[in-house]
Amino acid sequence: MRLLTHNMLSCNIKGVANGFPLRLEAEKWVEKEVELNADFLRHIFPKIEWKALAGAARAVGYCELPEEADAAMLDSEDFLRRFHHALLEIHVEEGALVCPETGRGFPITKGIPNMLLHEDEV
């Protein structure tokens, strides 16, 4: 699971109002190089919840993202590189996503988060 996917996932338990962002507990992750596409980064930037991305990046030990970001930063190549790395080059292999409201954990195994709900959560 890349951090871009984390950035859109919300807790899906019925009745949960503040299920975003899921807290990332990463036990194992890998980094894979991907070619940087500046047009894509500019396209996706306004849709990203920055605090959630910066928090998830810290959970995998990457602390190079600023606390806040605005569109003017997209002119900086250095910023684009960091944004690109956090968004697309880190894959969480093992760990969990934890609902901020209920504390329910969704395990991540072999890179795949298990978002299936129990019967009493539907």
């Binding site: 859109m8 996932l9 899906n12 299936l116």
Partner: peptide, 20 residues
């Protein structure tokens, strides 16, 4: 190819709209 997968019932998915 690097693809992300999510184990979930599509109808129960809760995503922020418009990122996809």
């Amino acid at each position: 190819l690097d693809i992300d997968f999510i184990w979930c019932d599509v109808n129960k998915l809760r995503w922020r709209d418009d990122v996809v």
